[in-house]
């Protein structure tokens, strides 16, 4: 397969995954910020949403003195054309990438992406007329974004041939997903630390559920642990549990599997296979107690760097 086409597929999947993640972050933040202060609802929630989306610096650059409140942040994360990771841009870029590799996609996938893009245009038009998006409309929009990625995921799973095209789009999805999960942990790690109980007490409970919601793991948590929400278990679920589809371990299981398929089909392996296996091995040998002992923050920062390194390795080995 042409390297450029593989690159398009890789990024197509990454952008849709990112759009989904940002929609979930907004969702979770809305719930949190709607709580009375006594329950942990705080004015800093939207700032932390920006952090979680990795867009805080850009926001400050662009918006200057604008207050970091719900309206401004949602606008920035959803519709701002200047924010490369806004949901709008993610869907737009996903479609541009899809168009460039139109023949490598199945009809179902293309239709899904194209109609999502058309739907986005409709939302934008409506919003341009009224200049604001009321909460109800925003809710509809966020649901639409989540459904788009579900459709993409499902249609590629059901209709794609298992060859380069499929593997690269899956790789893009899991590399992005690992990055997203790690980022939310990175922003919220302080509420997961044992000492934080002293600071906020169990009020952090709502923070923990917000994290779980952002990675759609609220229900899964109870199925896995069958007990009340404990911060170290939240970290365990998102980092180490292989059965949790957004955990770092699960992402890397998938990354390793798809890189292996590639290596097998090409009869050749390289730096990306080696790096991915090393990372999966490390995650597999880890215990959550040790992670807390040696520093959750350090662990996550290290992981984000390694994950970025893997993205570069894949690009160098296959996509250039």
């Amino acid at each position: 397969m042409l390297s450029r086409a593989a690159d398009n597929l890789f990024w197509l999947a990454r952008y849709l995954e990112r759009a989904d993640y940002i929609a979930r972050v907004i969702d979770a933040t809305q719930r949190l910020s709607a709580l009375p202060r006594a329950y942990g609802g705080a004015a800093t929630e939207w700032e932390s949403a920006l952090d979680t989306a990795g867009a805080a610096d850009l926001f400050i650059d662009r918006q200057k003195e604008a207050p970091i409140d719900e309206n401004n942040v949602v606008e920035f994360l959803v519709f701002d054309a200047e924010n490369p990771s806004s949901i709008r841009n993610c869907i737009d870029l996903a479609r541009t990438n899809a168009r460039a590799v139109r023949t490598a996609l199945t009809m179902e996938m293309w239709e899904g992406i194209n109609s999502a893009w058309l739907e986005l245009k409709r939302f934008e038009e409506k919003r341009d007329k009224t200049c604001v998006m009321d909460l109800e409309e925003l809710g509809r929009f966020l649901t639409f974004v989540k459904q788009t990625s579900l459709h993409f995921d499902g249609s590629s799973n059901r209709t794609m041939l298992r060859n380069d095209a499929y593997w690269f789009s899956r790789l893009g999805l899991y590399v992005e997903r690992a990055d997203n999960t790690a980022r939310i942990l990175d922003v919220k790690y302080h509420v997961l630390l044992p000492e934080s109980e002293k600071v906020g007490g169990s009020l952090d409970y709502f923070q923990w559920t917000a994290i779980l919601r952002a990675v759609s793991a609220h229900t899964s948590y109870h199925w896995v642990y069958r007990q009340g929400i404990q911060p170290w278990l939240v970290a365990d679920l998102l980092i180490l549990r292989p059965e949790m589809p957004r955990s770092l371990t699960s992402c890397y299981e998938n990354i390793v599997r798809h890189l292996d398929s590639l290596g097998l089909s090409h009869g050749r392996q390289g730096a990306s296979q080696r790096l991915a296996r090393t990372m999966l091995g490390r995650l597999g040998n880890e215990k959550i107690e040790n992670v807390f002992q040696s520093g959750l923050h350090e662990f996550i920062t290290g992981f984000i760097q390694d994950n970025t390194r893997l993205g570069t390795a894949i690009a160098e080995q296959y996509l250039m």
Binding site: M1, L2, S3, R4, A6, H266, R268, Y318, L319, M320
Partner: peptide, 22 residues
């Protein structure tokens, strides 16, 4: 394959396309 100019390169007067398999 449908290629664009940037998918191709020339080395010692031979034309190659960049693919995931080299």
């Amino acid at each position: 394959e449908l290629v664009e100019g940037r998918d191709l390169f020339v080395r010692d007067d031979i034309v190659f396309m960049r693919t995931t398999e080299g």
